[in-house]
């Protein structure tokens, strides 16, 4: 499958996504410069983590106006897969491709740590290789991952199984103690109504090798590959 990884000024997870997808999962990967608009031939676009434009103004607020973004919108409108990780999630929310917003962590500090995520919907293109209610271990690294949405949006997300991942204890219990940033409903990742655009704060590209502490992130990548393979 062909993955495109977008590099904005200040992006830093582009290399990690490239390494995990290209070297570990042996997929076809190329970088997309933020000034490019050509996404032809790609099956999945990754908006990686980092501090695009230094997080100035608001995380993702400037990157959403990049030249590449209208192309990403068209790509998504065509039903192709888009995944936003960390800063990529923030950009997708700012661009209106996903609902809600990511506010500063409730404790006002940066957090880099492993988190447990409960897979709430294992039938999406991003989670089909997991089992119902499976708990996966994926690290976070952010200052603004505190997910917020209004009542109606939350209700919509919950009712339509659009919450993909929730922070939880290692046994799957959704608790206040396992919520690392104050996110509403412990939300760690969501999909759009159509199910082809996903945003998540944790970094699956950091969890692809046991040597680095875990390989549960591969479940997400392998789900995408399986979905795309089946479609072909």
């Amino acid at each position: 499958m062909k993955f495109g990884i977008v590099t904005f000024p200040g992006t830093w997870s582009d290399g990690d996504c490239y390494y995990s997808l290209g070297n570990i999962l042996e997929q076809d990967v190329r970088y997309i410069w933020h000034k490019d608009t050509d996404l032809s031939g790609l099956d999945c676009v990754v908006l990686p983590g980092g501090f695009s434009y230094g997080d100035y103004l608001r995380a993702g607020a400037i990157a959403r106006f990049s030249a590449v973004m209208p192309a990403v919108e068209r790509f998504a409108a065509g039903g192709k897969l888009v995944i936003g990780i960390c800063n990529g999630f923030q950009i997708l929310c700012e661009a209106g491709l996903l609902p809600g917003a990511l506010m500063t962590n409730s404790h006002l500090q940066y957090r880099c740590q492993w988190t447990n995520l409960k897979v709430e919907n294992h039938n999406s293109p991003f989670t089909n290789q997991s089992t119902a209610g499976q708990v996966i271990k994926v690290p976070i690294s952010h200052h603004g991952g505190n997910y917020y949405a209004d009542e109606r949006t939350l209700e919509d997300l919950e009712k339509n199984n659009r919450v993909l991942f929730r922070y939880c204890e290692s046994n799957g219990e959704i608790s206040a103690g396992s919520n690392p940033n104050g996110s509403m409903h412990n939300i760690a990742g969501i999909i759009n109504a159509r199910g082809n655009v996903m945003g998540m704060m944790p970094h699956p590209e950091r969890a692809c090798e046991p040597l680095l502490g875990g390989s549960d992130g591969n479940i997400i990548w392998k789900s995408i590959i399986r979905y795309l393979t089946n479609k072909v």
């Binding site: 830093w12 390494y19 500090q109 940066y110 957090r111 880099c112 740590q113 970094h203 680095l212 502490g213």
Partner: peptide
């Protein structure tokens, strides 16, 4: 935990 100690996937 306030520092990113994992980025670059080498840690």
């Amino acid at each position: 935990r306030q520092y990113d100690h994992q980025v670059l996937n080498n840690t």
